[in-house]
Design a protein around this nucleic acid. Structure first.
Ligand SMILES: [Mn+2]
Ligand SMILES: [Mn+2]
Ligand SMILES: [Zn+2]
Ligand SMILES: [Zn+2]
Lengths: 159, 159
DNA sequence: CTGTTATCAGGAATGGTTACTAATAATACA
DNA sequence: TGTATTATTAGTAACCATTCCTGATAACAG
């Protein structure tokens, strides 16, 4: 399973340039619109394909829904969730959040409020008990799937 | 604009029961499958409609992508983002995260690692400068849109 | 009961994304 | 500098989750 080496096409480099140019966070169709001004014949599929290539080679990052489906929770109390990157299931965190950490976070948030921030969300990624049992998972597949969620954000840390 | 008062239909109560029964976090189609065992003629549209009604009346919660589109970032350095609940844009947080808060968070995370957690994501919600300018926004529309993102999760706090 | 009308089932439409295919062009190397 | 190999392309169809539309049904106020 050797990775086929990839070519630098005109389309790919233009897409990269356009994503890097501004410091905003364009959606795929916004990238498409920008690129189309320079390459009027480019297709949406090419944009999506190259964005993925660029993400997996680390040249850009993907922000976005980790899983596209909405989920519902009959428990309306405040609690944290862990999304399993193995199977995509969502579990309540068995361990209650460290209160001091959270309150520090909220204190920091308070300072940010005057800058327009008034809410946050903290979510966890990991492996559910079922997926943990299927050993070797961590070593094999984990690197592939979450090229978008694993190391993606800010504070995400490897073990 | 008085809200039309809602009826308690058989379908609605069954959907509520099924979401509340287990403590997992079903997707809409999983709810559909469960409900269908009791109401074989129910339709997917009914499930979606009622899930939304139940969410907005506070009986259940919605977890899920706040915005369904992926976004891309040409800046691969670690940094936080704020999603504007007014227009949906994503901005870099002007203010760097408080290091002590983040390190505390990661310390707490370390403890969780042995429970299968090995990553997290922290994102912020707020109003971008453009939307902040359109005053009254906060008072008018904010309550409607984020019935799902505003107070939804764990640590989300009002100002 | 009865009239009003919120809600229903069914199906079509939408939006974002991915998959397929024959044609094209980037690169290794002769 | 050709030429062969094959990754990549444009275009289009398929996909999936969700929303919208319709005439029929049923909840419930009076
Ligand atoms: Mn939960
Ligand atoms: Mn950014
Ligand atoms: Zn799992
Ligand atoms: Zn905005």
């Amino acid at each position: 399973m050797e990775q086929k080496r990839q070519r630098m096409t005109h389309q790919r480099s233009v897409i990269l340039e356009e994503v890097q140019r501004c410091q905003d966070h364009p959606t795929a169709d916004e990238v498409y619109e920008r690129v189309r001004k320079r390459l009027p014949r480019i297709s949406m599929g090419t944009v999506y394909r190259n964005l993925d290539v660029l993400v997996s080679s680390g040249l850009i990052r993907k922000l976005g829904p980790d899983f596209p489906q909405m989920r519902f929770d009959g428990d309306t109390r405040d609690h944290y969730h862990m999304t399993c990157i193995g199977c995509g299931c969502v579990e309540d965190m068995g361990i209650p959040p460290q209160d001091d950490t959270v309150s520090q976070l909220e204190t920091a948030l308070g300072k940010l409020t005057k800058h327009g921030v008034f809410g946050h969300r903290l979510e966890f990624f990991g492996l559910c008990p079922d997926c943990r049992e299927k050993k070797g998972y961590l070593l094999e597949e984990v690197q592939e799937i979450p090229s978008s969620e694993e190391e993606q954000e800010h504070g995400a840390e490897g073990e």
